[in-house]
Amino acid sequence: MFGYIVTDPAQLDEAQRLRYRAAYCGLCRTLKKRFGMRGAASLSNDMVFLNILLEALYEPESAEWSSRCVRHPLRRRPRSVSVLTEYCADLSLILAYHNAMDDWNDDKNHIALRYARSIGRGAAEASRRLPWQAKAVADAIERINVLERQADIPLDAVADAFGKMLGEVFPPYPDDHWAPALRETGEALGKFIYFMDAYEDADRDGKKKNYNPLLPLKQEPGYEEKVREILTMFLGDAAAAFEKLPVVRDAALLRNVLYAGVWSRYMMLQRKQDDR
């Protein structure tokens, strides 16, 4: 989606690096198999994270093998696929489709429209398999559009709608014992993602007069501290919700993302600012 839910490779050991790659490549392969190359373009680190998290929690049977692909034609790479990889693949497509349509509706972005059309059938297929999740995504995007047009809404209003959307799609089994904690994790991560994106785009949104909840805060002293505090608060929520889950396998890898990796882009932006 936005590329914030990533690992910090410098703090990964070799086994974790391989595990992450296997999940990434497994998800890519599943997308390609189901939806072609265009489907593979909807691949995101966010969904790789979810794939690893769900597999760690539910420990489904998984197929593991090594193979080549277009991007890595010379060496065989390990891949891992399970029924939860298929779940994440369907979700990837649903999210990518709705995001692309939203871009088209907002900015008349023709590339987005063409992409949406090219994955439309696949997204419809995925939506038939995951009707509950597809509806949650569509409803949330509509709600976000309505909110962004209103004046005087609380800081969290849109972030909350985005978070709720991600929260709804995190649990593959909505009535399962772990669904509430998964939902909380997704929701908090969603709010983090939304504010991180708002932080990164604040200048651009100000110029283009787009909605951005941080713009009023930017005018006032203490802006950087406030942003850091907001981001930390939501990551705190996400980490606390994650720690409720009895995840043992890949816990260290998932924690790399939640406690370090998520700050990658933020730290890069800080370094850019310092350089200026």
Binding site: D8, Q11, T232, R255, A260
Partner: peptide, 15 residues
């Protein structure tokens, strides 16, 4: 959250 980052530190590179 900040008091216990499970041994992880802030990323130094964007990766």
């Amino acid at each position: 959250y900040a008091d216990n980052t499970r041994g992880y530190t802030m990323p130094q590179t964007d990766g």
